[in-house]
Amino acid sequence: MSAHSHDGHLPHEPEKATLEGRNKILGFWLFLGAETVLFGTLFSAFLALRDQVLDGPTSQELFQLPLVALATGLLLTSSLTSVFATQALHMHKVKAMIWWLLVTVLLGLGFLGLEIYEFYHYVHEGHGFTTSAFSSSFYTLVGFHGAHVAFGIVWISLLIGQLAKKGLTVTTAPKAYVAGIYWHFIDVVWVFIFTVVYLMGKVG
């Protein structure tokens, strides 16, 4: 059942070599289906409430697209580097994999740093979490995404440690593979946030 590799010879797609691995990948796709509903509901709530700004600043006054565009650039680039990591996985190159995952994490940290700065800045502009329904739903939607990025950073960092210690095996391969899918998913969510929250917020 569990085809452990003792001789260092890995199958072509090590992430799908065992039933455990295949289960993990299928289950993770399904989990992302649930995540889609989760973010879909958050988007719906945001769209329903985004005009309720009360005394707080409006989205047009608040959002600065250059900053957000930079954050978007960092996150989208990190999606590309995570693809390189998965490609390295398929070529059984552990070192390249670790390297690309490290770049992914650093880019993710850059994104998160910009987001924290952005939130800090907004609070000083009078856009606190409790200011209005707009602000509550904004911070909840964007914050849920940010929490996903933070979780992904911790997760991939731990994976880097495991890959360095245990190498690429039929146990570590599925973990790295699903982490890659996860990272793409939070990027896709960000594309929607950039469009729905920021671009639509800017043009009103």
Binding site: V37, T41, L42, L49, V53, T130, S135, S136, T140
Partner: peptide, 26 residues
Amino acid sequence: PALTVGLAALMFDRVFDANFFDPSGG
């Protein structure tokens, strides 16, 4: 997941004073 979001939003309203379902906060 829809319930997850609903409960989280209601929790934010109750614990962190958010304004999802409170008409006086929009």
